[in-house]
Nucleic acid binder design. Structure first.
Length: 967
RNA sequence: GGGUGAUUAGCUCAGUGGUAGAGCGCUUCGUUCACAUCGAAGAUGUCGGGGGUUCAAAUCCCUCAUCACCCACCA
């Protein structure tokens, strides 16, 4: 065997062997009559490359799957990828752009061919990367959320598309899906609607302008402001109403100005008309001043302009008050260029405002109220023009340059100075919605879209978690889940993209809708009319919401669906609880009436060592593949598993991974030691039949760690499971058992040597088995290297031994031996005894139990404490250092080597510490309430502790006294 | 504006009622035949502040402070 594990060389070889032997296939290694255990992989984007988050998520899944597989469950880990509508279309369009091509120059079918071609070429990347991590998915079942879609090339067959379409049609028929013109989040970059969840609200520096809307016909009113006590603080005659806005360009689409019904300041003018201070003077529009509960009298001027087509709040007000919504922008958020010239549109709008005319929604939408000189401008360019125009006209509200409201980032055109009036433009932090993919500011847009009426299917999803039919762990995420579902809004599912599942709805010439799985059926429904299909596709999450049943063959009642659904565990990051987990719950319950999974384990985010989210722009991204290259997949996996404490973000650093790489090397060398000492696995070895104390002890320790590991993993406490294994392998097996075994193997009689070899081989095997779920590669390699085996380690039998292997007497004895060795080592180090020098141990007094323990383990103690001999003496000689152990006193005659003062200091320090402990224990035991109320075992433990500490203190006090007599 | 979580050794973090641990780092020593990707020994903590419950609090409750994240329509 080499000195260390060559991960780079071994990993691909081992991976190939696992796959070649079908080790990961559904049901592989299942015991007869085994219970199913299934996990659905969160499908990574087909465009994706493996990042640390994937590595984390999939490591945890693999640990669970490998553990269950070894335990003989009928396992399925279902892999696959997601077509990721927007993300993929974005990538392919970018690729096309490099070749000077654009989607707009080709037909839909042509573009989709490009996407499929791209998917074929690079869609397998992430799958290969998952394999490098060691993910033991049943790769023969690799699924894709667009398989079987029309236009899919050979090799992309499957029925996922059919399942998605069937669900859409069913939900449409039940009325769970509807179409309507609504204000939706519009991404001007991708030119599509997106759902609420795809919007990120980001606080950005912005401005709030204050403008005057003149009252129609030069009317005036007395504007009165009062303080909280009702004292008048301002009273003046005004011919305008002051409006504050962060988006002046939307003034063009105003349909009204709203004030709160209780706002005394504006009561005189409610019902009047005021003028929008933009556009050609001769066609300036007048709009009504209305009341609504929405305006907050304490914010801004208390008056809000109502632009129903470009603001969600305004939309609500407009709907309530019957104010028309005038759309100002096109799909790119440029001001509209279509429709009649401004003069004509403004005239019609004015008739509406005057109450002389009523527009239908469609008529209002067709009206382009953008003044001619602003048409075609980008929204931000338009904003500047509008502000300039109004300011030039003198309709900006003026204030003094030292007005604190202006803030340091306020726009202050013209002269500076406190006495100089400037337009009131407040510098303000504005929370603005951004597209999570495009990063551009979202424009609320009035468009026709498809929606899932989530309120109608949310009930069962709430109930399933409330009742515990599906468990969400850690518990805190239940609240998040409940909160979101209890306040759920309709889900916008249509996207104005080409890559995705096209909505199965057709329209006839009159606009009547026909929803059917195929065009032929839609035509039949219509009675044979010519139809055109809705061009939109479905939100990616609509199809991934069907991932559990879709991958198992639904709507066919396949054996896999029968066997593995509902799935056992879902492992997901908290960031997609709403996007994915909640929607899978709702949709599976709505479609097949059952929960998609029993347990949901929600893990945290991986961050960099400074706790920042990893992002390309910061440049702090750790590439898992590079980490695997550098440290091996096992090291990365063990690190992630060790850090997977529930509910907390984890900060990943290379140092930590290096530490666990070293752990692998440690294991490797323990196995190497075993090999070099002829420790071969013995068929039929019975761990309960060993006779040597040290062997009994390590067998018991092995049982302990198996129990601890399994309990931890059953509760999804991955870090505890990994920690227990680490402490056992390094802290018990390597630090002690291997060292104990050395003298036995070198000097023991034939029987002892044979038993120790067999035990050592067994212990190493147990280490490999127990570590395999977290460190599959190195353990598989060692498994094969140690001996010829019937099966690969991936299919080895998981042990079930329990506490019956723990021998209390062996435990106690080895605890005593280890304690004694540590004590002697500690004294040697503190007294500066040269490490290589062997010293004599004097046995001053020892009870029968200690005598026996010492005798059985003398060779080990001598070796590990570096003793030259052990000599019984009648009394502690002068100059010997006292070594106190339970039931015994030893001495180290190292007088000529030590400094009396130093030894005195050592004893005093130890005594002081003991004294504190004794005082604490005494204090508790002297308190009658403690003895009465505390559990018996706690009290007993305290008593035993006190006795042991007191005995030790006594011995050390004696030693100190003796030392004083010398000095 | 709501909500959730965090605050423990120099750093990163475990620890859900019994008197505080790990890894890394640090100090000293070590070429003992598995391993220097190692070994031995060691130092370092008013467990964020304050109050309460309890025989007993890092742990439960209240409060304050700071930080992080999520959700949210203040023009």
């Amino acid at each position: 065997m080499d000195k260390s594990f060559d991960a780079a060389a071994a990993e691909s070889r081992i991976s190939d062997a696992w796959e070649a032997n079908g080790c990961f296939k559904a049901g592989a290694n299942a015991k007869p009559g085994a219970a199913p255990y299934s996990i659905m992989i969160p499908p990574p984007n087909v465009t994706g490359v493996l990042h640390v988050g994937h590595a984390f998520n999939n490591t945890l899944q693999d640990v669970l799957i490998r553990w269950h597989r070894m335990r003989g469950f009928d396992t399925l880990w279902q892999p696959g990828t997601d077509h990721a509508g927007i993300a993929t279309q974005m990538v392919v369009e970018r690729e096309l752009a490099k070749q000077g091509k654009s989607r707009r120059d080709m037909t839909r079918a042509e573009f989709l061919n490009h996407v499929w071609a791209w998917k074929k070429q690079s869609g397998g990347t992430i799958v290969k990367q998952l394999k490098r991590l060691g993910a033991s998915c049943d790769w023969s079942r690799l699924a894709f959320t667009m398989s079987g879609a029309p236009g899919a090339p050979a090799g992309e067959e499957g029925n996922f598309h059919d399942a998605v379409i069937k669900v859409f049609v069913d939900m449409y028929d039940k009325g769970f899906i509807y179409r309507g013109k609504r204000l939706v989040n519009w991404d001007p970059h991708f030119e599509t609607a997106i759902s609420d969840l795809e919007v990120e609200n980001i606080e950005t520096a912005g401005h709030m302008w204050h403008f005057k809307y003149p009252l129609a016909g030069g009317q005036t009113y007395e504007y009165v402001e009062k303080d909280a006590d009702g004292n008048v603080t301002l009273s003046e005659t005004r011919d305008y109403i002051s409006i504050a806005t962060t988006r002046p360009e939307t003034m063009l689409g105003d349909g009204a100005v709203a004030v709160h019904p209780d706002d005394e300041r504006y009561k005189p003018i409610v019902g009047m008309l005021c003028e929008i201070p933009v556009g050609p003077k001769q066609h300036r529009r007048l709009i009504p001043i209305i009341t609504d509960d929405y305006p907050d009298p304490n914010f801004g001027s208390g008056a809000v302009k109502i632009t129903g087509a470009h603001d969600f709040n305004d939309y609500g007000v407009a709907k309530r008050a019957g104010i028309p919504c005038y759309r100002l922008m096109d799909t790119r958020a440029h001001l509209r260029t279509d429709g009649a010239p401004y003069a004509e549109a403004a005239r019609i709008a004015q008739e509406v405002a005057n109450g002389a005319r009523v527009l239908t929604e469609a008529e209002a939408d067709a009206l382009n109220l953008v003044p001619d000189h602003l048409r075609g401008l980008d929204r931000y360019a338009a904003r500047q023009r509008v502000v300039d125009d109004i300011t030039a006209e003198g309709l900006a509200v003026m204030t003094r340059a030292d007005d604190p409201r202006l803030g340091k980032d306020a726009l202050k055109p013209g002269a500076e100075g406190a006495e100089t009036p400037v337009p009131l433009v407040e510098a303000k932090l504005i929370t603005q919605p951004h597209g999570d993919r495009s990063k551009v500011v979202i424009e609320p847009m009035l468009t026709d879209q498809w929606f899932v009426d989530t309120a109608r299917i949310v009930g069962p999803a709430l109930e399933a978690v409330r009742s515990g039919r599906t468990r969400i762990m850690p518990e805190q995420h239940r609240k998040v889940y409940f909160h979101w579902l209890e306040n759920i809004e309709p889900w916008t599912i249509s996207r104005q993209l080409w890559w995705g599942h096209q909505i199965p709805v057709w329209y006839d010439a009159d606009g009547a809708m026909y929803c059917a799985p195929t065009e032929a059926e839609a035509i039949a429904q219509s009675g044979g009319k010519p139809l055109t299909r809705d061009p939109d596709v479905l939100d990616t999450w609509f199809s991934s919401g069907l991932w559990p049943i879709g991958t198992l063959g639904w709507p066919e009642q396949t054996p896999e669906l029968e066997r593995y659904f509902p799935t056992s565990t879902l492992v997901s990051g908290f960031d997609i609880i709403f996007f994915w987990v909640a929607r899978m719950m709702m949709m599976q319950l709505a479609v097949v009436g059952d929960v998609p999974f029993r347990d949901v384990y929600v893990h945290a985010l991986v961050r960099d060592e400074k706790g920042r989210k990893m992002s390309k722009s910061i440049g702090n991204v750790l590439d898992p593949l590079e980490l695997i290259d550098e440290f091996g997949a096992d090291a990365l996996r063990f690190t992630l598993t060790s850090m997977a404490a529930m509910g907390r973000d984890l900060k990943l650093s290379k140092e930590r991974i290096a530490g666990y790489r070293n752990f692998g090397t440690k294991l490797w060398n323990a196995a190497r030691f075993a090999e070099m000492n002829g420790c071969k696995p013995v068929a039929g070895f019975d761990p309960s039949a060993v006779t040597q104390t040290v062997n009994k002890w390590i067998v018991g320790e092995t049982a302990r760690v198996r129990i601890a590991h399994d309990e931890a993993l059953s509760g999804y406490r991955f870090n505890d499971a990994a920690g227990a294994l680490y402490a056992f392998v390094w802290g018990r097996v390597c630090d002690w058992y291997v060292e104990f075994a050395k003298p036995l193997l070198a000097e023991g009689d034939a029987g002892v040597v044979a038993e120790t070899r067999a035990t050592m081989a067994w212990v190493i095997d147990q280490c490999l088995i127990l570590l395999h779920p977290t460190m599959p590669f190195i353990t598989e390699e060692l498994w094969g290297a140690i001996a010829p085996r019937d099966t690969m380690l991936v299919h080895a039998e998981w042990p079930s031994y329990g506490t019956d292997l723990i021998d209390a007497e062996a435990d106690r004895e080895m605890g005593w031996v280890i304690g004694l060795i540590e004590e002697i080592r500690s004294i040697r180090a503190q007294m500066h005894v040269p490490a290589g020098l062997k010293v004599q141990l004097l046995q001053v007094e020892i009870d029968a139990r200690g005598q026996a323990a010492f005798a059985r383990n003398a060779a080990m103690i001598e070796r590990l404490a570096r003793l030259s001999s052990v000599t019984p003496v009648a009394a502690m000689p002068k100059g010997a250092v006292t070594v106190a152990a339970e039931g015994a006193v030893f001495g180290l005659p190292i007088a000529d080597l030590i400094d009396v003062a130093e030894e005195k200091a050592r004893l005093e320090k130890t005594l002081e510490k003991l004294g504190r402990e004794i005082a604490g224990l005494k204090g508790r035991l002297d308190n009658p309430k403690f003895v009465e109320s505390a559990p018996e075992d706690i009290v007993d433990e305290a008593r035993e502790n006190l006795a042991a500490r007191a005995a030790e203190a006594e011995k050390l006090a004696a030693a100190l006294a003796r030392l004083a007599s010398i000095g």
